[in-house]
Each structure stands twice: as C-alpha cells, then as structure tokens.
Write a protein that binds this DNA or RNA. Structure first.
Lengths: 136, 136
DNA sequence: CTTTACCTTAACGTAAACGTCAAGTAGGCT
DNA sequence: AGCCTACTTGACGTTTACGTTAAGGTAAAG
C-alpha cells in the first residue's frame, strides 16, 4: 500500500481531475497534508475520496457528503457526541432505506415492462413462419 | 380520481412549483394537452411526474430520466423496437443494481460505526453511577 | 368596468460542480 | 543557465435545474 501520493496520482487513481480534488478540499471534504506548497494525500484521504465517489454515484450533493463524512469525523470521546453520531446514523440510514425502496420500485416496474415486452415478442414470433420479417 | 387538472393543482399535488413543471415539459419529460393556451394534465402526466420525482430522489439527471421515460414510451409494435426496449431495460437494471450495492455498502459501514459507538457508550455508562440513558 | 386569481411566454438570475485558462513556483535533466 | 514537468493559486466560463421578475391574456366576482 502506497502510504502517500501526489494530487495527480490520486486523480488518476480515481479517474477525476486534479481540479475536482482541489474543489473537494475547498469544500472541506478532504484535508491533505502539505509538504511546503504541495499537497500530500494519505490512505485516509483515499478513503474519503472513495466515500465521496460513492455518494456522488448515489446522487448526494457535496454538502450531504460532507455531512456524512462529519459523522465519521465527530469526536467520540464524549457521551453527548456519541449520541449525536448515533442520531445522525439513524437519519442517514432512513434516507438510504428510502432510496432502496425507490430502487426496488423502479426495478419492479422494469420487470413488469420486461414481461410485457417478452410476451409481445412471443406473440410476434408465433405469427411468423420465418424469423423476423415484419411488414404490411 | 380527478381525470384532468391544471398546472397549479399538479404542482401542489407534488410539492413543486409550476415553473418546475413547465421546465420538465420544456425538456420533453411531460407533454400535457392544451385547452386553448392552458395546459391540461391527465393521470398519464401524473404517472410521469411520479417517475421524475423518484428519479430525482435517486440522483438521476433530467436527461437520464428522459431516457427512462423513453423506454416506456417507445413504440412496441415492431420486433426491433421491442428488442431495443429490452436492451434498455437491461442497462437500467444494471445501473440500479449498482446503486443498490453502493447503498448496501453504506448501510454496512453505518452498522459498523453504530456498533462501535454503541460499545463506546456502554463503556462510558459502566463508569457512571447514574445511567445517562438506557435502552434495549 | 375593475379587481382578483390563475394562467401564458420570455428572459434574466443563481447555486452546484466542476472545466478551463492564466500566471507563477519548485525540482530535475542536460 | 535553460527547459520541462508537475505543482500552486486565482479567476472566469459552463451546464444543470430551476427561481424570479417582467409583461401580458382570460374568466369569474364584485
């Protein structure tokens, strides 16, 4: 495991531009170390970026993603903070479960449509003595 | 069930602005009837809007949502079109299944974190004479 | 007829999430 | 020393998905 890397390496690794990574930093999603001027990324940052990309695939805004990251970042030394984290986890979970239902609904509708199409297709195949040739 | 309705009624029903609905029409996502100048929406349009809202919740762009709607709209009288629809269905399904996995991963991570927090909390509660909060 | 309420198109404004220069710096090669 | 490459910080441009006036049409109510 490469301990640290440059911004260009990280960008290649995740298939994004360096501009994107700097933008995420600007929005407080990543906080790399510095070696003089240059940014130095560690596995910690790679984990973050993975979280970010996953969040993006699911359509979360960067702000929402920042909130998720905050959950992992919150200080867990005090009871109040722990309770806060548990509360946020519950909210996130509820949100994700909603999405799961939306996806399940969509998949169900696709199944239905597919079944319809398949049966239409069978009808057409039965009607033709030879393979696909349709016309008046 | 009200067969038709105005743009304002539809907007209230779905909790969006009329501007939003007109914008969706502009992008080819909805095509209401007209009574003179005015738009008239039927259950067909309501179904569309439900599809749109669901797509938005899942983070799909309006363009992607338009493509989904196209799947349902494609002419199914010809075999070639049916095969096209089946192909698109497969692609959509693959996409949705990917999202399901992303969500499952996130939920798993939340479970893990929750477990960690819960055990930290138990440690702290053991140390206190008066319990902070008990459950389960 | 005027007000009120709802509708229309058209056009400009805006926040998010970057893309795309521009101009400068720092280290390595020859 | 000169050049190349990779990095840096701006700062303006772009697309998406609407918000927000502007400017007006229509139909019932007062």
């Amino acid at each position: 495991m490469s301990r640290t890397c440059t911004i260009a390496e990280l960008a290649r690794e995740f298939g994004v531009t360096t501009r994107t990574i700097r933008f995420y930093e600007d929005r407080g999603l990543i906080t790399p170390l510095r070696e003089g001027q240059r940014r130095v990324y560690r596995s910690r940052d790679r984990v973050r970026l993975r979280l970010i990309m996953r969040g993006k695939r699911l359509g979360f805004s960067l702000e929402e993603i920042r909130e998720m990251i905050d959950i992992y970042d919150t200080d867990r030394s005090e009871v109040a903070q722990l309770l806060l984290v548990l509360d946020r986890i519950a909210q996130r979970r509820a949100n994700l479960v909603e999405r799961q239902h939306d996806i399940a609904t969509m998949l169900g509708e696709l199944d239905e449509l597919e079944g319809h199409c398949a049966s239409l297709l069978r009808e057409k195949e039965v009607g033709t003595s030879r393979p696909v040739r349709a016309s008046g």
